[in-house]
Design a protein around this nucleic acid. Structure first.
Length: 416
RNA sequence: GCGGAUGUAGCUCAACUGGUUAGAGCACCGGCUUGUGAUGCCGGGGGUUGGGGGUUCAAGUCCCCUCAUUCGCCCCA
């Protein structure tokens, strides 16, 4: 039946995978905390203008990728396609310019109406950070360092490379655009169809075109770096210096760009070659013009976002379930006594598996499947004598233990 | 939105050029004397072959449509 399938591009994350997602998210939060970031939790939908105004009406996200609907009150609502716009809106709504600089962490689902592929869903998860109110390169170094350490904690440092570029400030970029368009004008007839389109909409994008026809043209195109004014050049050099001092290796990719006008200076991507066409795993940049453009006070910002699904695909890390202790009544009549013991142990911090039915044999088998570290067996003999049988599931050794001393004996299993 | 590939049990796959009640391994459930797990042996459930339509005496096998997955493009995490 059609309706029993998940909607295209959505997925059920079953426990085994869910544990890995959780691990990735927790790792991101943990590392962000070390840098003094605090979590902000913003709505997963906003008035559509929040996104259409910030992302630009001509961007693909706005024109074809937004999940937009009219709610019962007649408002046009959009499921968030990314996090930055919502954070910026929250910054303005809550008058947070009082508390600058702000270092914010967020996580949660995002929505884009796209063609699903490996590592690309219509509902997907991101973690991200934003620094608001810092116009110096120091924030750029900081969040890239944060990103780098986050990926390191996931054991991905060998699978991922950092690509870095600068877009310069507004003046530099305007100058560059003119130079680039001048240059491309000569090759109008040789550019791919897509790039001809980009020529009007988003000329910088032509720089990272994958079409081989464009490649050779682009290779000889003027470079942004040559159009930078003094301040912009200085900014980029400071950033590079900072990263080198921190031993964060990067590749200066002169063709890495961001299309929208409020982006400036730093643009970076952490990419992997193991994800097919969706190689970008974490990406960010500086957006000094964004908050102002939204109608807020002129406030610089920089941030990045990472795709949880993509990271989870790459990480070989398993987030193993902790090994529980099974409490097993050898007879169904002893269930209540087992329940009482289980409850007591749970209150004291142990992870207890207590099955619902089955013979002792069945329950032992289940305990084995659950990877239990120990089993506590309880029958009428034991109840009578106030003891239990404690069995180590790895060695198979078992001993009788007084119920009073049980927890002391279990302490060796408590550490996970 | 555009182009290519794929779609058989929960999973991985089988079924000669279209031909009788669609098979196997793993997984699942039950049993091998009733208070104890990992092997082993025996047995069992589970598929309208993604869905719909067509060709044919006959379709999992051919054709069309649709849905989904997958690999690219666009774009992006």
């Amino acid at each position: 039946m059609e309706s029993l399938k998940p909607v295209r591009g959505t997925q059920d994350v079953l426990p085994q995978e869910s544990r890995i997602y959780r691990k990735v998210e927790e790792t991101a939060y943990k590392v962000a905390q070390r840098y003094g970031f605090d979590e902000i939790d913003i709505p997963i939908f906003e008035f559509s203008e929040v996104f259409s105004r910030t992302l630009g009406d001509s961007s693909d996200i706005v024109t074809k990728e937004m999940y937009t609907f009219v709610d019962k009150g007649g408002d046009t609502i959009t499921l968030r396609p990314e996090g930055t716009a919502g954070v910026a809106r929250a910054f303005i709504s809550n008058g947070l310019q009082q508390s600058l600089p702000l270092k914010l962490f967020y996580k949660g689902p995002m929505f884009r109406y796209e063609r699903p592929q490996k590592g690309r869903r219509r509902q997907f998860r991101q973690v991200g950070v934003e620094v608001l109110g810092v116009s110096s390169y120091q924030a750029d170094v900081e969040i890239i360092s944060l990103a780098s350490n986050f990926l390191k904690e996931l054991n991905l440092e060998n699978d991922i490379t950092l690509e870095l570029n600068t877009l310069g400030d507004n003046d530099s970029r305007q100058l560059y655009k003119v130079r680039l368009l001048d240059y491309l004008d000569k090759y109008k007839n040789e550019l791919s169809k897509d790039s001809l389109n980009r020529l009007r909409k988003n000329p910088l994008r032509i720089l990272d075109s994958k079409d081989p026809r464009d490649r050779s043209i682009v290779d000889n195109a003027p470079k942004i770096i040559d159009s930078l004014n003094h301040d912009s050049k200085q900014f980029f050099e400071n950033l590079c210096d900072g990263l080198e001092k921190l031993n964060i290796s990067f590749k200066h990719s002169t063709n890495l760009v961001r299309g929208l006008d409020y982006y400036c200076h730093t643009a970076f991507e952490f990419t992997s070659t193991n994800l097919g066409a969706q190689g970008t795993v974490l990406a960010g940049g500086r957006y000094d013009g964004l908050i102002n453009q939204m109608g807020g006070p002129n406030t610089p910002g920089i941030g990045w976002a990472a795709g949880i699904e993509r990271l989870a695909l790459l990480t070989k890390m398993e987030n193993k379930k902790i090994r529980p202790i099974a409490v097993i009544p050898t007879n169904q009549e002893n269930y209540i006594d087992a329940l009482v013991i289980a409850e007591k142990l749970r209150k004291n911090g142990f992870n207890i598996e207590l099955g619902y039915n089955g013979s002792a044999k069945k329950r032992m088998k289940k305990a084995n499947e659950n990877n239990c570290i120990a089993a506590i067996l309880l029958g009428k003999e034991e109840i009578k004598n106030n003891i239990v049988i404690l069995k180590d599931m790895d060695s198979g050794a078992q001993q009788e233990i007084s119920q009073l001393k049980l927890e002391k004996h279990l302490d060796m299993y408590k550490i996970i």
